[in-house]
Design a protein around this nucleic acid. Structure first.
Length: 774
DNA sequence: CTTACTACAAGAT
DNA sequence: TTGTAGTAAG
């Protein structure tokens, strides 16, 4: 199953999104996923050999969902097994058979739930099942193709050649194949997570700055993948480290074998190379040429014939038949369609095809939804089949949720490359609803929704017009192109975004965090931030408090910033092998920041010298470094503290004890911000991000009551792609890796921060005052 | 001795 | 998918 731990490793660059943001685009879909999930819903029937088409219905529901959101799914089916996977597949099928038997036993024993659980493991997605789905796809004019071998390679090929603009799949292998944009974790509401190759440089878990696709691939393969068994005890992190140190996998392998810490097979290097070649040169079907091609053209001096493990060539004629689904890709025999239960006259498919394009934005009206979808749920069906209902509910859900507080709303940061996101993206992204909620939700819930709705509504209406799928006469080979063309047609609103951004920027509120949001949801449970969110004991909180003062005073000094710089640098060096480029960059940005720090620092209430009363157990002067040298946890705490500091003054007002914290910021006022040039701003942002976790964003807008919070955050959202881009792509972008303190701030979305900090603030506030006045 | 990473197991959806 | 245990390294 893909690469173990790869997704967690990339957690920080996973951005929550919604399918509707990709309105007008064609997305490759790993059909296996949908088929399999559909099959789960009818695992018993399948195991018993009873005819069922429930899995087809499930998959088609997903298709309709995609179309509903204006996304054209381009389904890609798996083909033959690669020789590399032969053994694996064999053992799998044995296991499946065992599960099937066990499951049927349970069934006989009258334990349906256990039977189902067991039978789920027995599910095998066969070419015949795929064929049944294909029949539906044909009816619905949905593009599809059966890959000669692995769908992964085929998908990446399609993406690479512009047939699709992204890939929808749960398989992390796609990233190793070289997928540029991967959507995962798609749920029935159309919410999903985007992983973009371009964000790799911003990965916090591990520094991928400057890493090439090849290096990334090496890391993944070394840690163990489908084509190469993992070395026990050797995972992604170690692979990453080793690669960083030794650069080439050859050297890494040599080192591994040299110091026998790990049990490495003698021919491991050979196997590694084969695995990589499989990733690189695997066969795919080119819809244009109508024949097999290599995912990546092999170098001239490489004899493909000597790479049996990448699959064998298939004659174009046969390949084409396989691609359209006429021939079983494994047996190469024509697939005889067995009749399935009644297609259940669903005018639905026809209806969905012809129906007017649903408003891309919010499904406030559900005309497009097949009527029978409403009834589906009434059958005793697995939840999966009830999806259609979810679409229509979406709008309601959105408003309901946000207002009720079930779900938190997060504001994902705009991506530098918003280009493809299209117009709706900015608003949509802000409206993103985060499922995983931490305790802070209640605070912002109330306010945000309204704004969201407003912004959404206005925009959505306009864009609803365009939705189109491939022509009726679609054939696998032709469809892709036509649909691709569709993509480009989307109305460009980029300019508008820029304008907005500029305006906002000009407002003087420097809200933009220019780091890619770690999506609220993922973030919330992100381990690395656990210390921020966790309900740390009061003692702990208290323990950290003293530092606040220290920090404060330190920063008070004209060079508060400098302190942080030192810190960042320090962590830098500690971070083992840091690239020179990064280091230099870091320092340069720091310099820049130094001069502009004041601009970034927000206004704060008049200084309140209460700070003198505060307890300062530790020397108040050297705190920043302390954080670095100490454990991660501490640093995290400090960052929280920092943000707290900034937040509180504004919200509480000058009278509160908390205002003592504002002293520092007050000193270095804000006036400059508005006048900054974009360039300056970038620099300042970068700098701020690093040294000063909390951005002015919150402070200014933040009212005493939470009521207007949401709104503020929205307004303050950074939207200028240009700025963001510059900053993000800067190699320094990933510098943050090195600065623990900045982590949460950078990664967080505004709302997230709000929520979190708000919550945290509260507790801390209490502690603090208690502490101060005790 | 402490931290980090893997690997393993159990809960949740 | 998250939490825990074992193990290795600093």
């Amino acid at each position: 199953m893909g690469i173990q731990g790869l997704l967690p490793l990339l957690k920080s660059i996973q951005r929550p999104t919604e399918l509707k943001k990709y309105n007008g685009q064609v997305f490759g879909v790993d059909a296996y996923g949908w088929l399999h999930r559909g099959a789960v819903s009818c695992a018993i029937e399948l195991a018993q050999g009873k005819p069922t088409r429930r899995y087809v219905d499930f998959a088609m529901n997903r298709v309709r969902m995609a179309k509903h959101f204006g996304v054209t799914p381009y389904l890609v089916f798996d083909g033959d097994f690669l020789p590399s996977k032969g053994i694996t597949e064999e053992s799998r099928s044995k296991r499946r058979e065992a599960s099937r038997k066990a499951g049927l036993e349970f069934l006989k024993a009258g334990k349906p739930s256990q039977a189902h659980a067991e039978l789920q493991k027995a599910i095998d997605v066969t070419p015949e099942m795929a064929r049944h789905l294909i029949e539906e796809l044909k009816k619905a004019d949905i593009p599809y193709v059966v890959a000669p071998y692995e769908a992964d390679a085929q998908l990446v090929y399609l993406e690479r050649h512009g047939h699709i603009s992204g890939i929808l799949s749960e398989d992390s292998d796609l990233l190793v194949f070289g997928a540029k944009r991967l959507l995962t974790k798609l749920d029935q509401h159309g919410q999903c997570v985007e992983i973009n190759r371009r964000d790799f440089c911003a990965c916090r878990e591990v520094s991928l700055t400057g890493w090439t696709d090849a290096q990334f691939r090496h890391m993944a393969i070394l840690s163990g993948c489908d084509y190469l068994d993992s070395i026990s005890g050797f995972g992604l992190k170690t692979a990453h480290r080793m690669l960083r140190k030794h650069k080439t996998p050859e050297k890494v392998v040599r080192m591994l074998q040299f110091d026998g810490k790990y049990r490495v097979p003698a021919d491991y290097l050979k196997l590694f190379i084969q695995a990589e070649q499989t990733f690189l040169y695997q066969w795919a079907f080119c819809p244009k040429a109508n024949e097999l091609v290599h995912l990546t053209p092999p170098p001239a001096d490489l004899k493909v014939e000597e790479l049996p493990f990448i699959g064998s060539f298939v004659e174009p004629e046969m390949a084409r038949k396989i691609a359209v689904g006429d021939v079983n890709p494994i047996t190469k025999q024509e697939i005889i369609l067995t009749s399935l239960p009644s297609p259940r006259k669903r005018t639905a498919s026809a209806a969905s095809r012809t129906m007017p394009p649903p408003p891309p934005r919010m499904a406030r009206e559900t005309p497009g939804k097949p009527i029978d979808s409403y009834f589906k749920g009434h059958r005793r069906i697995p939840l999966g089949e009830m999806e259609p209902n979810c679409f229509s509910v979406d709008p309601d859900r959105l408003s309901g949720m946000t207002e009720n507080g079930d779900r938190p709303i997060v504001f994902p940061l705009p991506r530098p490359y918003l280009d493809e996101d299209g117009p709706a993206s900015s608003a949509a992204s802000r409206a993103y609803i985060n499922r995983a909620q931490n305790s802070s939700q209640a605070l912002r819930r109330r306010t945000e929704p309204i704004t969201n709705l407003l912004s959404n509504g206005g925009r959505s209406l306009s864009s609803s017009s365009r939705r189109q799928t491939t022509g009726p006469n679609f054939t696998p080979t032709t469809a892709p192109d036509s649909s691709t063309g569709t993509n480009g047609a989307r109305p460009p609103k980029k300019a508008r975004l820029c304008d907005d951004a500029a305006l906002e920027a000009g407002s003087g509120k420097e809200k933009s965090k220019f780091f890619p949001s770690k999506g609220g949801k993922p973030m919330t449970d992100d381990k690395s931030e656990g210390y921020l969110l966790s309900d740390d004991s009061i003692e702990e909180a208290l323990k950290d408090l003293p530092d606040v003062d220290g920090w404060d005073s330190a920063s008070k000094g004209k060079k508060g910033v400098t302190v942080y710089q030192g810190e960042s640098l320090q962590s830098h060096s500690t971070e083992t092998t840091k690239d020179d480029g990064e280091s230099s960059l870091d320092s340069s940005s720091s310099d820049m920041a130094t001069s502009q720090t004041d601009m970034v620092i927000p206004d704060t209430p008049p200084k309140n010298r209460l700070s003198h009363f505060s307890y300062e157990p530790r020397g108040s002067s050297n705190q920043p470094r302390r954080a670095t040298s100490t454990s991660r946890r501490q640093s995290g705490a400090s960052s929280t503290r920092n943000s707290l500091i900034e937040l509180t003054p504004a919200s509480i007002g000058t009278s509160t004890p908390m205002s003592l914290f504002s002293e520092r910021s007050r000193t270095e006022a804000t006036p400059a911000t508005p006048q900054m040039t974009p360039l300056e701003r970038i620099g300042a942002q970068a700098f701020t991000r690093q040294k000063q976790p909390s951005t002015p964003t919150f402070k200014a807008p933040r009212p005493p009551k939470r009521s207007s919070l949401g709104r503020m955050s929205i307004d303050s959202l950074p939207i200028n792609p240009a700025f963001e881009q510059g900053a993000l792509y800067e190699p320094g972008g990933s510098e943050d890796l090195l600065v623990p303190d900045s982590e949460d701030e950078e990664g967080c979305t505004n709302s997230e921060k709000f929520g979190r900090h708000g919550e945290k603030t509260k507790s801390r506030k209490l502690n603090l005052s208690r502490f101060l006045f005790a």
